[in-house]
Amino acid sequence: MKLISRTEEIILVTVYKLGKKAYGVAISDHIAQKTGLNWKFGSIYSPLGRLVENGYLRAIEGEPTPERGGRRKIYYEPTESGIKALKEIQKVNSAVWIDMPGFETEK
């Protein structure tokens, strides 16, 4: 399988977790909530674009809303190969981490 970048991985996971509600603001908020990483929109668009291009995500246009200045939301949703990729990433990750010795606890 093709390994995707760490950034792409985080975004792919987030999109999956958000289910039907994954769009720009939501993704960015979720990542900020869970990890404390304050990613700007600019930096999530590129990986999102790449994920779409590689067929892991598909983009669906939503309804325009007034608070967006009349512009549509773009919702993202994992495709089948996206879900497959997620499974493999999980497998690889846990395989890598499983025999990780614990850190020595500091006092």
């Binding site: 769009y23 720009g24 603001v25 960015s28 929109f41 600019g42 668009y45 674009g49 246009e61 809303t65 608070e67 967006r68 200045g69 512009r71 549509r72 939301k73 773009i74």
Partner: peptide, 19 residues
């Protein structure tokens, strides 16, 4: 700086702003 920043996406900026 960006070719593909369609209206829909930049809506994100405005939504966050209003929030």
């Amino acid at each position: 700086f960006s070719d593909d920043l369609e209206n829909t996406k930049s809506g994100d900026f405005e939504e966050e702003y209003n929030e």
